[in-house]
Design a protein around this nucleic acid. Structure first.
Lengths: 227, 227, 227, 227
DNA sequence: AATGAATGAGGCTTCATTCAT
DNA sequence: CATGAATGAAGCCTCATTCAT
């Protein structure tokens, strides 16, 4: 088999030389924003809120484990330290739990896209956002499954989130296209699909490195100044 | 005693011709070549061969469905119209079934790579091979899962097949690199991973078209003459 | 969290009186004494306790049938009138069910040995204890299997119980040996093995009578005053 | 196989001192007599006879393994090197195979009883026969299950064999009773049941030794001259 | 006759989901 | 609200038994 070494110093498209370990991680400044449906009149009981929180955290941990997407809900409840009934009260379906888990994560990625939009080099911004995504998935392994679910767009709710995500990365792309830096026939859905596909199921050691390289090559392929 | 070895004795007719898209399909000439062990005197019983075949076809179909890799073996048996015991007789483990499923498909892809290697334009050859892959997956949806399994390289046996596949596409890449047409830092594993990732789980209408576009952009990114 | 520990909280009424043969039954005074862990605040749910009880009773019945040790757990659940899942909740392994079944019975036998230890004629005491055992098995047919399992000493837990039982009957023997009434080369394990062997699988009508006769002959063989 | 350690120097009832390894093994001279139903006109084909033989040997081996009584019939056929269908042709039911296996063994024990009947000391003859039984079981572990089946008398066929066995040991007992050496209230069925019970399921190291001791104590209990 | 392929019942176990407390 | 017990469907796998070759 190949290329296991990971010396990690590779040459991205235009000759830039980057060490992936040293690269500044971008997503850390992102603040977790928990969107809560505003319509609910009754303020939730303190313990209910706490349990909900615990469940989300536990779900992230459990789903984040290898092949975690198939973990039992009991395992999540156990990890959260609550009864299975409580889990069901908060998240009546497995999907609803997944959604709640990824929603906050996706929120952070949307946020990040907004922050990056202000920079001078639109292509670099796109690359950074992609890099942040990969790091994100690396940190919180469950993200891959979450993103995959979002992009398959099964539910109304996930459709909403997918939309937000698409809009965010679409903004980054559009700026670069407008600046003449990228060709215009690759849409945000394309990029997201690619991203999700590459991250999802990658588990071999060094996968981050490889995925980042592939993404860089891809962005190279998107560059206008070539061909 | 028992357990017929897993080497398959059935050949899919080389004459079937099916074009699934208007694009010129390249993989049709591929002939399934399967070694038959000469020593074994007793010819396999007709129904056994038929059932084995049915199981492989059913497995391809079932595993090819969404998240098919986690389908139950009973579902496969049901789809094949045989008893669960028959499935277990032919494929004592889940893995052995997977292997049998992908082995023949991969064989055809390897073959195709060999055929394409003779052409004048190495980059075009690579593109064609990728296109053939996508078509292949489109035709036999199970391929995606099969390839995914191969590339995760769990078993010794799958490792062998993965090697063959890697070597095949590696040959295509190397020629292009040697000709100065492609950069050298994208290996066959990279390309295969990308391919598998993109095909795997793509099910939306028009996914073929999209995947092909993305692959084209990626190969653009690999081009030497740019940058 | 989950898995209530296996310590049993239900006591069989000490007042039930059932004589299964005309012979004076000795074991009736035995009181089931079961330690209840004092720390556990939450009282077990009524239905849980009931189901646990039913399962134990059913297991005793089912395992008591011919070759009952190989009965399916589903048969036990069916006999108990509960779902298979319930069985698994209470007894996660087959062994744990076995243990729970025999533990309480053995407890009573140990108790009886203590009560008999006070009498004037040690050999008679031993005979009575053996007789009580046979009656016990006659009453609760499952005992035979239970004892058999105990004496095979597979698990740590069963080893503990086996120890208690051995100590109990050992006390009876030792007293008789010390009084010069019995020879010293037959240990408690021997006697228990004999007892279990004879009871286990005896099902022909009149087996009790026969087994008692054989045991009496055996104790005769243990008598010092002969030869 | 068998007879591993067995230094086994114990003191049996009357002070006789015996080393179990040195004791002359009695059953070896016994000739395997294969009773075949005489009514069958057609002489069996040579290969059929051979297969039948192989199956019996294989069954003895397989059933003789630990917990072998629950081995699959496929395992027996495999061990015999014949197809499962062949097994079924020869032994249409599991029971019939068991019977065929034990019949020949029991035949040998019957034979031995006849040989021993001629000796001067009838009690010693009985002891020797019991000893031979234990050795028999030790050598061919499957015997225990076989004997157990015989003595439970489920089938007509086994009933016949049980009768022969009972008659054989009955002869030994009767002689001793007639000579005034043993009490008359222990019948051959009793003794067989005891024997089977003790051997069946004994598997701990040194079990032979223990079983022999218990049998000796029991025979002591049968002695007339005492009490 | 011999073979071994096919079949499905049945045992094991996990889990999603409901519901009593 | 929280809890966790109860339930059974469903997947896994083995094997006894039948039957085509």
């Amino acid at each position: 088999m190949g290329r296991s070494d990971e010396r990690c110093c590779i040459r991205t498209g235009a000759g830039r030389r980057e060490s992936y370990t040293e690269a500044p991680s971008v997503y850390q400044g992102v603040i977790a924003v928990e969107a809560r449906p505003p319509g609910r009149a009754r303020r939730p009981r303190a313990d209910a809120a706490r349990n909900r929180e615990r469940l989300l955290e536990a779900a992230k941990r459990v789903f984040g484990r290898d092949d975690g997407a198939h973990s039992s809900l009991e395992a999540v409840a156990r990890e959260a330290g609550v009864g299975i009934g409580t889990l069901y009260r908060h998240f009546p379906t497995r999907e609803s739990l997944f959604e709640a888990v990824y929603r906050r994560e996706v929120e952070q990625l949307v946020e990040l896209a907004g922050q990056l939009a202000g920079g001078p080099d639109p292509v670099a911004a796109l690359r950074r956002w992609l890099r942040a995504n990969v790091e994100f998935v690396a940190t919180k392994k469950g993200m891959a499954a979450a993103l995959a679910i979002v992009m398959q767009g099964t539910t109304d709710l996930s459709a909403y989130t997918a939309e937000r995500l698409t809009a965010a990365v679409g903004g980054l792309i559009d700026r670069a296209v407008a600046a003449g830096a990228l060709r215009g026939d690759v849409g945000p859905e394309d990029l997201l699909r690619l991203l999700v596909s590459l991250c999802y199921g990658s588990s071999a050691p060094g996968w981050q490195h490889n995925v980042l390289r592939l993404l860089d090559v891809f962005v190279d392929g998107m560059r206008r100044d070539r061909a």
